[in-house]
Design a protein around this nucleic acid. Structure first.
Length: 303
DNA sequence: AAACCATGCAACCGCCAGTAG
DNA sequence: CCTACTGGCGGTTGCATGGTT
């Protein structure tokens, strides 16, 4: 006895959004904010369910979306974050301003996975494939420490995205790994007076100890924007994931997207820079009213 | 030119957690 | 405390497009 879709009750439209629907939704949210999603379709005169409206706004209409192809920096960051967070796309997206979880998920599934495999890295565990295969072979089914941390409190609120230092993507930069290969482990060193973060190999511990300590470390780390940023800037195994991808920083360009839809919209760069991090709710229309009106004109004036 | 295939992307589905009544 | 509702999330699907045969 499966549940009916939320669109089932009424005869609601499904499928691709038309430019007219986009305009209605955008105008409504511009004017009133989104407030309660379930009431938006009615108020905006849309034959859609609230969920659909929310998704459309988040994934397509939000003014602070970056769009365009991902830069190599972004791809590297996604890989690093995936190693830490696993398939927690929304958490990953929270650290990539202007990118949506859906976009990142799609990129991962269609592109990054393959690239990692080509590099001989298992995209699930982020370990070398040979190691993973051997691990399976000898019956070791212990979950990897990477990508499957029992992190439950890693964002609230999400920290600002880490600034990308030159170190972070410097091809010459190599992290302080204690061995050439091994499971990635990111934690705090205990000897120092400050929160020294380091990449290294997993120490031998009981599973319970590991898990408990891991959770504490990750919770601390991910709840601390400063720690996270510092960690990402300075202590990242960049060489591990030094994947050759196109290297042009291509934010805010619409030229390179291979199959962009006909109603693509591109927002002025100044707009992007001024807008807050994506997860800040846009419930107060005053926050972005003017901007949004400009955007509405920009978005629909030239279709 | 047509058929087939691969890929990327947008959107839906179903589950879960939080919360108001 | 219970229930219904809502928003949010991750997994999955289906379509459009471009490339290849």
């Amino acid at each position: 006895m499966g549940r009916q879709s939320c669109c089932y009750k009424q005869k609601l439209r499904k499928g691709l959004w038309s430019p007219e629907e986009d305009e209605k939704l955008l105008r409504h949210i511009t004017k009133y904010g989104h407030g309660c999603w379930s009431s938006i379709p009615k108020q905006a005169g849309l034959q859609r369910c609230g969920k659909s409206c929310r998704l459309r706004w988040i994934n397509y209409l939000r003014p602070d979306l970056k769009r365009g192809t991902f830069s190599q920096e972004e791809e590297n960051l996604i890989i690093e974050l995936h190693a830490v967070l696993g398939n927690r796309w929304s958490q990953i997206a929270a650290r990539l301003p202007g990118r949506t979880d859906n976009e990142i998920k799609n990129l991962w599934n269609s592109c990054l996975k393959k690239k990692l495999k080509q590099k001989g890295i298992d995209p699930v565990t982020h370990k070398p494939l040979s190691e993973v295969e051997n691990g399976e072979g000898n019956g070791s089914n212990k979950p990897s420490l990477v990508g499957h941390h029992p992190i439950h409190q890693y964002t609230s609120p999400p920290p600002p995205p880490p600034k990308l230092s030159s170190n972070w993507f410097n091809p010459e930069f190599s992290p302080p790994m204690t061995a050439s290969y091994g499971p990635l482990y990111y934690g705090t060193t205990t000897g120092g007076s400050a929160n020294n973060t380091t990449w290294g190999l997993v120490q031998t511990q009981t599973e319970e100890e590991e898990e408990e300590e891991e959770e504490t470390k990750w919770t601390e780390l991910l709840n601390s924007p400063l720690l996270m940023a510092a960690a990402l800037q300075n202590q990242t195994p960049q060489s591990y994931y030094n994947i050759e991808i196109k290297s042009e920083p291509c934010y805010l360009t619409n030229s390179s997207s291979s199959s962009s839809s006909s109603n693509d919209m591109w927002w002025p760069q100044t707009q992007q820079q001024q807008l807050p991090l994506r997860h800040e709710p846009l419930q107060n229309p005053d926050i972005c009213g003017k901007d949004m009106q400009t955007l509405t004109a920009a978005a629909f004036g030239h279709i």
